[in-house]
């Protein structure tokens, strides 16, 4: 498990440029499913076929990650950039960025009156170039960079960039490995461009036209010092989504997940996420509507290079998904 997660989080895949991570996921999941393909927007769609007339259920975990995009290169070879997805300037100080070809840069910022004036447009990336020409030989306008950080496993807790949402991808892959006799047709979808507006899931759901949807993504916790109040903690089980900004989970799916967790004795907690969205949003509004819910992996420090999850929660999420997919649907 740790090795799989390490490979997933360290893969390059900012929103809109997921090819590297997509190709890795495709290779890993190919032997575990009946068919796998990549669609027009770059979503990886792996299918475990069901018997004739089976209900179609779509699982979605986004594989893209947040990052930065180069907007300008100056005469001295410094790169200006904008964000891709939710990137805080304060998080970038002291960080390293890696481009698709492996070029690494560091973030710096201009002289400021105070730290509250720190905005992305006061920052730049330094790749060590001494001139515009030298920089342009490595990086062009429009090139995208992601956090450059290695995976760390420390007991039950793992720390890495992009656990949002490569840990969800790991959950889907492992569920595909363990799921043997589902009475349903199961779509394991690794979606593109979630971080910039839940875009891949929207088109994937349209083309797959599922009967039910379950998104798998990370969620916030309220278990750190003086945190914003939230009844989700690391290590207390799979989180079953009640709502976020993009969906109110369909009661049928929410209850199915809760009842499965209770019956199988899988630790779970209820997630009411007041800010933030998931792929469950666009899935449930597809065509004439898709009853949809979500299973979430509790995660601290989301959108930093040091996101943290508990592997016991990950295991519980996998068990909950597998048990749900093996049973009857509402």
């Amino acid at each position: 498990m740790e090795k799989m997660v390490k490979q997933l989080v360290e893969a390059y895949g900012p929103a809109g440029e997921e090819q590297q991570v997509a190709s890795h996921i495709k290779d890993v999941i190919e032997p575990l499913v009946d068919r796998v393909s990549v669609d027009e927007l770059g979503n990886v769609i792996a299918i475990k076929e069901g018997p004739a007339g089976a209900k179609k259920i779509m699982l979605a975990a986004h594989m893209d990650e947040i990052g930065v995009i180069v907007t300008d290169i100056d005469d001295a070879g410094f790169l200006r950039f904008a964000n891709i997805g939710g990137v805080s300037p304060f998080t970038l100080i002291g960080q390293r960025v890696r481009f698709a070809d492996g070029t690494v840069g560091v973030f710096g910022y201009e002289k400021l009156d105070g730290m509250k004036d720190l905005k992305l447009n006061k920052m730049y990336v330094d790749i060590g170039a001494t001139s515009r020409e030298e920089a342009e030989a490595k990086v062009g306008i429009g090139d995208k960079g992601v956090y450059h950080r290695e995976f760390i496993g420390q007991g039950q807790r793992v720390i890495a960039k992009s656990l949002d949402n490569r840990i969800g991808c790991a959950v889907l892959i492992e569920a595909a490995r363990r799921l043997e006799n589902s009475p349903h047709e199961v779509y394991f979808v690794f979606t593109a461009q979630e971080e910039v507006g839940l875009r891949g899931a929207r088109t994937a759901a349209y083309s797959l036209d599922p009967d039910y949807g379950i998104a798998v993504d990370v969620t916030d916790t309220g278990d750190t010092p003086e945190a914003r109040r939230m009844a989700v903690s690391l290590g207390k089980g799979a989180a079953i989504k009640v709502k976020d900004s993009t969906i109110i989970s369909h009661p049928l799916i929410k209850d199915l997940l809760v009842n499965t967790a209770k019956t199988k004795g899988i630790p779970y907690q209820m997630e009411v996420l007041e800010r933030g969205g998931t792929d469950a949003g666009p899935i449930h509004l597809t065509r004439s509507g898709v009853p949809t819910g979500a299973v979430s992996i509790p995660c601290r420090y989301i959108h930093t290079p040091s996101e943290m999850v508990d592997l016991r929660d990950v295991e519980n999420c996998i068990q909950l998904l597998v048990a749900t997919l093996e049973g009857p649907l509402p």
Partner: peptide
């Protein structure tokens, strides 16, 4: 349904 959280019910029922 779900108008108050983002005009969601009308989105899918109109599609139908």
């Amino acid at each position: 349904v779900q108008e108050e959280v983002g005009i969601r019910g009308a989105t899918v029922s109109t599609y139908d």
